[in-house]
Amino acid sequence: MSSLLHITNGDNFTARLQKLNLKGDVITWREMLCEGKTLTNVGSESFWKTRFDFLHKNYKVSKSWFIEKTLKEYRSLCNHKQQDQIVLWFEYDVFCQINMLAVISWLSANRKYAEISLVCSRNVDGSPKMHRLNEVSEEQLRTLYENRTVLTQDDIEYADYVWQLYCSDNPMRLENLSDFNNFQFDYLGDAIKSHLKRFPSIANGLNDMENNILKQSLEKKPMDRNGLMDAILKNQGNLGFGDTQYDRAIKRLKPLFTSFDPVRLTRKGKTILEGKTSYYSYMRNNDVYLGGSLKYNFLYNTDSDRILKL
């Protein structure tokens, strides 16, 4: 008799999945590894200490919350040793794809005997729109589950390899990946491309996400901060970030706004958005990591779509 374990991308979907009454236990992966420093040895003491330090400093996460919400669930994963079928439920966006890589890396080291399969939302009913797992019907979820992708050993090793590169101190190693099509990760290539655009652009020192915040402010002319947040979340591409992440980003850009009620940019904010001047020297922080790389040690060339090392 085979036994099942489901690992999900977050609490909201876990609640939804439990209502489907599929066989197996459900574990929630409560992390946001797309932000802050990461180490290759997922689950190690040094890994969790690095993650807590980042979350505590930048999101005021308390030790008790971290233990109760993240470590307790991770320990539950460690204790599920009998399941020989593990199903991963992760979205197509940067947020989820990075978490997915880390989970597969951990499984490759700790659950070598298990069959690992992947369920991801996608275009449904012929719609060009990408649908999230929480946006599709129960019937469609069951269909996605029944048609899940069983990962080969090559797939698993490749995901682990990409995770190692994500945690390295040089994003140019990720940039040189070109063989995504040889593996069963439909959205990983696009997620990595979007990740690389999170390094500051050579044009104005802001990354793609930060430029989009200014762009939405100028084009949508939101009446207040909530309106700005709504515009950003609806027009963020495939980052998959939440309002807490964007709230932190807006605070970094606060000097470029004259007002948030209504939302208006300063003259300097407009010239930066136009690429006429750079904000790099104001944004530079030697303690900001994307994976294993220092964010401000690299620039992204938007003309050539290449990373430059400073």
Rank of each mutant, 00 (worst) to 15 (best):
residue 123 N to K: 14
residue 124 V to Q: 11
residue 124 V to A: 06
residue 124 V to L: 12
residue 127 S to G: 00
residue 127 S to C: 06
residue 128 P to G: 03
residue 129 K to Y: 06
residue 131 H to E: 07
residue 131 H to N: 04
residue 133 L to E: 08
residue 133 L to D: 07
residue 133 L to G: 12
residue 135 E to Y: 02
residue 137 S to A: 05
residue 143 T to Y: 10
residue 143 T to N: 09
residue 145 Y to A: 00
residue 146 E to L: 09
residue 147 N to T: 06
residue 150 V to N: 10
residue 150 V to E: 04
residue 151 L to I: 09
residue 153 Q to C: 12
residue 154 D to V: 14
residue 154 D to T: 15
residue 154 D to L: 12
residue 155 D to C: 15
residue 158 Y to K: 15
residue 158 Y to G: 04
residue 158 Y to W: 15
residue 161 Y to T: 14
residue 162 V to G: 07
residue 162 V to H: 09
residue 162 V to A: 13
residue 164 Q to M: 12
residue 164 Q to C: 14
residue 164 Q to N: 15
residue 168 S to M: 10
residue 168 S to W: 05
residue 169 D to N: 15
residue 170 N to A: 10
residue 175 E to Y: 06
residue 176 N to M: 15
residue 177 L to H: 06
residue 179 D to I: 02
residue 180 F to M: 04
residue 180 F to W: 05
residue 181 N to D: 14
residue 181 N to T: 12
residue 182 N to F: 05
residue 183 F to M: 01
residue 184 Q to L: 09
residue 185 F to E: 01
residue 191 A to S: 11
residue 192 I to E: 04
residue 193 K to W: 10
residue 195 H to M: 12
residue 198 R to N: 13
residue 199 F to Y: 15
residue 200 P to Y: 11
residue 200 P to I: 11
residue 200 P to T: 11
residue 201 S to H: 13
residue 209 M to F: 15
residue 209 M to N: 10
residue 209 M to P: 03
residue 210 E to L: 11
residue 212 N to E: 11
residue 212 N to P: 03
residue 213 I to N: 08
residue 213 I to H: 11
residue 214 L to I: 12
residue 214 L to D: 06
residue 214 L to C: 03
residue 214 L to T: 08
residue 217 S to E: 08
residue 217 S to R: 10
residue 218 L to K: 10
residue 220 K to L: 05
residue 221 K to C: 04
residue 221 K to A: 11
residue 222 P to N: 06
residue 223 M to V: 00
residue 225 R to N: 00
residue 225 R to V: 11
residue 228 L to C: 02
residue 233 L to N: 03
residue 234 K to M: 05
residue 235 N to D: 15
residue 236 Q to R: 08
residue 237 G to D: 03
residue 238 N to I: 12
residue 240 G to I: 02
residue 242 G to W: 02
residue 243 D to M: 10
residue 244 T to V: 13
residue 244 T to P: 14
residue 245 Q to D: 03
residue 248 R to C: 02
residue 249 A to K: 14
residue 251 K to W: 02
residue 252 R to P: 00
residue 252 R to M: 10
